[in-house]
């Protein structure tokens, strides 16, 4: 009988071992999740060295108007947004809806740079999904993308009326991102040059 009680006593203790083991595991999981959570925005936080500098010069053939060129020179004097995209990029499809909404909003003109892409595919893409861009440049060689320091599509740049890069957004752009990141900058930039076309 005495052995019985001692056994059940140790049994009572050992029955708690799984609980303790699991509690440790839970803590580690929680730490990991918090770590992941704090790492979420990752590359989006890397500032482009381009910000505050003049927009890189580009002069590229237009995607949908044969013979026409799209260049920074042709755009000077007004603020615009440069969106680097490609049909090969699934995130670009995800943000397309936002771009259409921005275009519909009409506050600023969107300039697309179609990056190392097939022109036919790109034209079909715009026909099917709708074309948010005022002008689209075809950057087959990827030269402009290199000048812009693009490391993955989509990337979106805000250029002020005096040709300075104000902001860069990495990855798919959501309407919230647009409202939070771009609109305040545009409003701020518009003030000193009141009466401009913005």
């Amino acid at each position: 009988m005495t052995t019985e009680t001692s056994q059940s006593g140790s049994g009572r203790f050992s029955a708690f071992v799984p609980v303790l083991l699991f509690a440790v595991l839970l803590i580690v999981f929680a730490i990991t999740l918090i770590k992941i959570g704090s790492n979420r925005l990752d590359i989006r936080e890397i500032k482009s060295p381009l910000i505050g500098k003049p927009v890189p010069a580009f002069d590229l053939p237009s995607l949908n108007q044969p013979g026409a060129r799209v260049s920074n020179a042709g755009l000077s004097g007004r603020a615009y947004v440069v969106n680097v995209w490609g049909t090969w990029c699934p995130e670009c499809r995800a943000e397309h809806e936002t771009l259409l909404r921005i275009a519909k909003d009409g506050q600023v003109s969107l300039i697309g740079i179609d990056w190392s892409d097939d022109a036919q595919l790109a034209q079909r893409w715009l026909q099917q999904l709708g074309n948010p861009y005022e002008q689209v440049a075809s950057d087959v060689e990827g030269q402009a993308a290199v000048d812009f320091g693009v490391y993955g599509a989509p990337e979106t740049f805000l250029v002020s009326a005096d040709g300075v890069v104000l902001h860069k957004h990495l990855g798919a752009l959501s309407w919230e991102d647009w409202q939070k990141e771009f609109v305040p900058l545009m409003v701020a930039a518009a003030k000193p040059v009141a009466g401009s076309s913005l």
């Binding site: 992941i36 790492n39 925005l41 990752d42 590359i43 936080e45 699934p90």
Partner: peptide, 13 residues
């Protein structure tokens, strides 16, 4: 497609 290895993410941060 949307994947970026977490280690890469962290090192980029």
């Amino acid at each position: 497609e949307k994947y970026m290895p977490p280690e890469v993410k962290q090192s980029l941060k």
